[in-house]
Structure formats: C-alpha cells, structure tokens
Design a protein around this nucleic acid. Sequence first.
DNA 1: ATACTTGTTAGTACCTGGTTATAATAGCTG
DNA 2: CAGCTATTATAACCAGGTACTAACAAGTAT
Lengths: 208, 208
Amino acid sequence: MAKVVRTIERLPKRERHQLLGSLIDDNPFITDQELTRQLKVSIQTVRLDRLELGIPELRERMKLMAERSYDPVRSLPLDEVIGDIVDLQLDHSGISLFEIKEEHVFSRTGIARGHHVFAQANSLAVAVINDEIALTATADIRFVRQVKLGEKCIAKAYVRSISGGRSKAKVEVFSYVSDEMVFQGSFLIYRSAGETVIEGGMDGADRN
Amino acid sequence: MAKVVRTIERLPKRERHQLLGSLIDDNPFITDQELTRQLKVSIQTVRLDRLELGIPELRERMKLMAERSYDPVRSLPLDEVIGDIVDLQLDHSGISLFEIKEEHVFSRTGIARGHHVFAQANSLAVAVINDEIALTATADIRFVRQVKLGEKCIAKAYVRSISGGRSKAKVEVFSYVSDEMVFQGSFLIYRSAGETVIEGGMDGADRN
DNA sequence: ATACTTGTTAGTACCTGGTTATAATAGCTG
DNA sequence: CAGCTATTATAACCAGGTACTAACAAGTAT
C-alpha cells in the first residue's frame, strides 16, 4: 500500500495553489468559504494557502481595487506604449501587437475607434527612433478598413530616411489584421540630435 | 432663554448632513469613527445620518468602487468623445475643450502624447458630422508645437465640404492653447448617407 | 520501530466596521 | 404638562477574516 490513495477530488498542493490563484484571479470577489467548496479542502487550508501565496483577504483585495481606481494618476492603458512591441530594430523597423478590446470600440457597432489604431502606430513610430527624445511632427494617415472587437492589430514600422542632419526621420507604419491592411500612416518624427531642443513636436520615447 | 445655545463646534442637522456628504465624497475611505471626530457627534448619530442619506457603509462603498473598476465594459475617459464639446453646429462647426492632465503626458518631460491631441480632434471631427454613423477615412495632421501638462486645448472644427453624394465630408480641425495653434488636421470623414454601409473607415458617433 | 517533518484540519480568541433594536436623555413646542 | 425630535448609550449580532495552539495522518530519515 505504498501507492497514494488520492481521492479524485483532491489535488496535490502545487496544483491546488495554481487553481486557487486562477480562481481568485478571475473572481476577485470570492470568499474563503466559496474557495473551500471549490477546492474541496478545509477553510484553514485555504487560508494557509493564501498566506503562502501572499494573497490578501477579500476585503483587502477590494480595497486595493477601489484605491487603484480612485487614484487620480492611475496608469491608463495609454501610459507608455500602446500595443506590445514584439520586435524592434532601432532606426530600422519594429513590430507591435495590439488587441482590440471592449474599451477600444464604439459600443453600438463594435468598431474600433480611430485614435486607438492611430495611437498604436504613433507609439511604434516614436519607439523605433533611436533617440532620447522623439516627437511626432506630422502624420499622414489612412484608415483602410475598420477594425473590430477582438481583432489583433499588427503594426509594422519602417524607417524610410534619416535626413536633415539627423534631426528628422520619416517612418512608415502599416497595420494589419491577419493579412489585411487596415491602416497606413506616414510619420515625420523629430529627434533630439544631440542636445538640440526641438520646437513643434509631440510625444516622446525613452531609450534604455 | 429661548435662544439656541449652539456650541460653536456643533452644526444643525441640515448642515451636518451636507458636511457629512462632502466629507465622504472627497474621501470615500473614511470610517464612521473618523466622521465622529470630524463632525463632533456620536458614532450613532453618524450612522443615523448615513441611514437617512442612504450612504452605505465603508465596505459597501469600497465594494462598489472595486466592482465598477472591475467591470470589463467600464467607461474609460476615452469612451465617447475626448474633450468637452462646448459648441456644436452640425454639418458646420464645433468647439471642444480638453485639459492635459497627468495621465496624458509623457512623465519625463510633461509633454502631451500625440494621440491624445489627435483623439480630441478626431472625436470632434466625427461629432460635427450630422449623421448616424461617421467614420474617419483619412487624416493629414500636423503637430505644430508640443502641448504641456495643465494646458487647456481648444479644438475648433470646420466642415469644409460635403461632397460625393453626401457620403464624404472634409473637416478641418485647429487646436489652440490660448492663442497659439498647436495642432492642425484635415480629416476626411465617411458618413452613412441613408443606409449605405461604408468600408474602410473608423470611428463612429451617435446622434440624439 | 522511533523521531521528525509536512500537510491538513479543528477550535478558540480576537479584530474591524459595521447593522439592528431598544432604551434613556435633553430640549423645545403646543 | 404631554408629545415630539434629535442625540446618545448599550447590547446583541454579523461577515470575513487574523493569529495562535493543537491534533492527527502520512511519508522520510535514522
């Protein structure tokens, strides 16, 4: 009888911790009582598990959420770069991904609002410029077709020229949903060539 | 002795209710204990007051905030129109105001990120078109000078032409900080002329 | 076999921030 | 004076925990 009996219901600790994490993750309002039922262990075990995993009690979780949403300088999804940059060759090209979610669409039609698609492209155009400060000067953009809820937008940026004593760069950005082009933009980016302070620009990007 | 004695500290009920309301309003995380101290009445009175005013207990307040911020379709400040529309003459012109706050700037420099200024202009260009659905087709934009934290951006939109069987409109938008122009954009907006479904556009606007 | 360790469960005391109900008191009013 | 409102007090109870102590089962080491 060296074999583990393991009632079907009962998971090993590791897996239980995983499950507990994801349960709380997709319902932060769950009580220990409910977790007890779902995990088929005692409430003490649930509490020890939370302790081990550093998961605070229900009320603390709610308080944290409330405080975060009350924070006036909360980091909007617009904070640094719109979209996830998956490839970046400075001064040459870059790729970013951006998934269209509920909060990006016009609720009545499910069509993404233009400035989100623009923001992704603009962010990428600025990011691809290898400089301390990069500011969008002008942009010529075209929304080729609408992008809908749930679609994944792939933006590809190409640096076309570095002119004017390295103070300007032209960047072209094409955004796709699968193979279809949905957006095209031509950006003129000012850069801080050395310590030159530039007038008439917007946006910035860090280099690290 | 018909005169009310009224200790300086103690307010009449009405005023206390007002004060209580505003205290909770600008610090939703305040407990009855703290209210007791600030209002100089017993905790029972505080609780009776909350009862009368229909203000839930601290934990309920936090829960409501947490739930609201957890709501997947939460109305971000990006939801409908960026900026406050202060004047709108459909198919002719419009004005909107937008104040640059912490969350709109690049933290290192305090310079507004381009897509916010674009978003204001784009929203206004779409809003000024008198139609059920209006979608940005193309835009030619220019960031004339950077906009900084705390500045108020005034966008003015003018409908320049209504062409192509009422299916396209050209809208020009100029954004100013005081008298200085900071942004200029030329938008081509597709509209749903009757029931025509348009391809290759973005964004929408309601009419009510 | 015995001791030690880990995992789990149980039980108790205590905490915060309240609710609900009941009663006592003060002060004014008709 | 009775009747009313406003306020305060007191006590029981609740949810959803924390903190601690104890007990037991199973596996591992000695």
